[in-house]
Amino acid sequence: MNREEMKKAAVDTVVTIAKEEAGAVLKLLNTDEVKELLKAQMDIVTAPLEQEIKNTDSLWVKVRNRLYIIVLNKAVDDIVEGVKKKIG
């Protein structure tokens, strides 16, 4: 085995170990906690939309913002479900 082959074998071994460790850590994640973290961050994004809904008389703005909020919340749910499927 030459030097390049040894380096490649060492790198492959390290990558394999890192993937296994990352997989083990991901399996320990509580997806409900992840979902709550994402929802908390989403509140920061949706708060201005909610504020605009309260402060406008425009029906169009109210409907548009409500749709944005619904889509964003659905995206969070879909992301969490995707994570659950991939690590489960």
Rank of each mutant, 00 (worst) to 15 (best):
V63S: 13
T56E: 08
M6H: 11
M1T: 11
V83R: 00
D12Q: 14
I17E: 04
G82F: 03
D43S: 13
T46P: 04
T46W: 02
L29N: 00
M6N: 12
V71E: 07
V11L: 15
V15W: 10
I79E: 13
K35S: 06
I17F: 08
K8W: 04
R3C: 04
G82V: 03
A9D: 09
D57M: 14
N73M: 07
R66Q: 15
L72S: 09
S58Q: 13
E33L: 13
L49E: 07
E81D: 11
M6R: 14
D78Q: 06
N2Q: 14
A22R: 15
I53P: 04
D12F: 10
V34S: 01
K35H: 03
L38W: 02
I79D: 06
E20C: 08
A18I: 09
R66N: 13
M1K: 07
K74A: 05
N55G: 14
N2F: 10
V71L: 04
D32K: 01
L28I: 00
N73L: 05
M42F: 03
L67R: 08
K85I: 03
T31L: 00
R64T: 11
V80T: 11
K74G: 03
N30Y: 04
L26M: 15
K74N: 11
K86A: 09
A9F: 10
K39P: 02
Q41I: 01
L29P: 00
K54E: 14
V80P: 01
I53T: 09
V61H: 01
E5T: 12
K84G: 05
R3L: 15
I87M: 02
I53V: 09
K7H: 06
D43L: 15
R64Q: 12
E20M: 07
E52K: 14
K62T: 02
K39L: 03
R66I: 06
W60D: 03
L49K: 12
I70N: 06
V11H: 08
V83C: 01
D43G: 13
Q41D: 05
A18S: 07
T56D: 06
D78M: 04
N55R: 11
T46F: 05
E33S: 05
N2G: 14
R3N: 09
V80R: 00
V15F: 06
Q41N: 08
L67P: 00
K27I: 04
L38C: 02
D43I: 04
N55V: 10
G23M: 07
I70C: 10
A9E: 15
S58D: 15
K7F: 10
I87R: 00
E50A: 15
A40T: 01
